[in-house]
């Protein structure tokens, strides 16, 4: 039972680990870049699943954390600070700080108000980035190269960067997996089911929800750090409300509240987008209805569909 439930995430990671070998027989750099992007968004989607799937908090401003992480890289490297040992802690700390402030205010509201206020904070981050004329403003800025580690260009080669991203994804996934079954995660899951009961048991939920919000924001900041390095470019486009919406769609598409569903969702979303846009320039006409159908008919997303198939097929 346990083995079967863990099979899918293991399969996903095995695919990511072996993909570069297959890619070396094809358009290698294109494939490496594409799947690196998938893994970066998978980290962001997994972090969103923590608050959306496990916490039942619909945040519509999650892309802002990616932007904060990416801008930490962009701004530091434009001042000549290119070392990961500085950039990464700054990116994570900035995202965490942004999460503490916005979370403390947003979590005082519920339901649709929470959606609206997280959206508003996301837009504030977006317009702040647009107004940073010294750092490219509207147009964003190109980095002079990828981050270093103690002076080494450790992710200069695409394949090295690919594996660093994979390690980051696995670490983020393992952290979240441990989190959701821990004492802390059980409080979060309980609050999703019945907040009144949890309060009457003696849990001041605000504290726990703020903590999970900050953890998710910080993890998404990690995705932002990787995103900046992947594109060697940062721009306000990383934190549009559309991008936040896409992250939500990835989580829904894969299946809420399973963590690996978010990885699958990010992969399906980006690969479909890539595939369809190669076929026709009107790809959104196909992509939109497809998403609607998945949400309508595959309840529980792709993970739900896989589990139903397995339930029918096997003993």
């Amino acid at each position: 039972m346990m083995i079967r439930r863990e099979a899918l995430p293991l399969l996903l990671f095995a695919f990511f680990a072996l993909m570069p070998i297959a890619a070396s027989f094809g358009p290698e750099s294109y494939l490496l870049a594409l799947v690196t992007r998938v893994m970066v968004f998978a980290i962001a989607a997994v972090s969103l699943d923590l608050i959306l799937g496990y916490g039942a908090l619909v945040s519509f401003g999650h892309a802002a954390f990616m932007g904060v992480g990416a801008y930490a890289v962009g701004i530091l490297s434009s001042h000549g600070i290119k070392d990961t040992a500085i950039q990464l802690p700054v990116a994570l700390a900035a995202s965490a700080f942004f999460a503490v402030i916005t979370g403390a205010l947003s979590l005082r509201t519920k339901g649709v108000y929470f959606i609206m206020i997280t959206l508003a904070f996301g837009q504030m981050a977006f317009f702040l980035a647009v107004s940073l004329a010294a750092y490219g403003g509207d147009d964003g800025m190109t980095l002079s190269g990828r981050s270093q580690l103690f002076g080494f260009d450790f992710i200069k080669r695409d394949r090295a960067f690919y594996y660093v991203t994979l390690v980051a994804l696995i670490a983020a996934y393992a952290l979240c997996r441990s989190l959701v079954v821990s004492r802390f995660g059980r409080v979060i899951r309980g609050a999703r089911e019945n907040p009144q009961r949890m309060a009457a048991i003696g849990f001041p939920l605000f504290h726990y929800q703020l903590a999970i919000y900050v953890i998710a924001g910080t993890l998404c900041g990690l995705a932002g750090f990787l995103m900046a390095n992947q594109a060697e470019f940062v721009s306000p486009a990383y934190m549009t409300w559309q991008r936040s919406g896409e992250l939500i769609v990835m989580v829904l598409l894969g299946g809420l509240g399973s963590l690996h569903g978010a990885i699958l969702g990010a992969a399906a979303f980006l690969l479909l987008e890539e595939g369809l846009s190669g076929i026709t320039e009107h790809w959104k006409l196909i992509f939109g209805p497809f998403l609607v159908l998945v949400v309508l008919f595959a309840r529980g997303g792709l993970i739900g569909a896989v589990e139903r198939l397995r339930g029918k097929g096997g003993a």
Binding site: L179, S182, R183, F184, R186, V187, F203, Y208, A211
Partner: peptide, 8 residues
Amino acid sequence: SFRFFGRA
């Protein structure tokens, strides 16, 4: 309950 590791 701010314990993040171990199966509760």
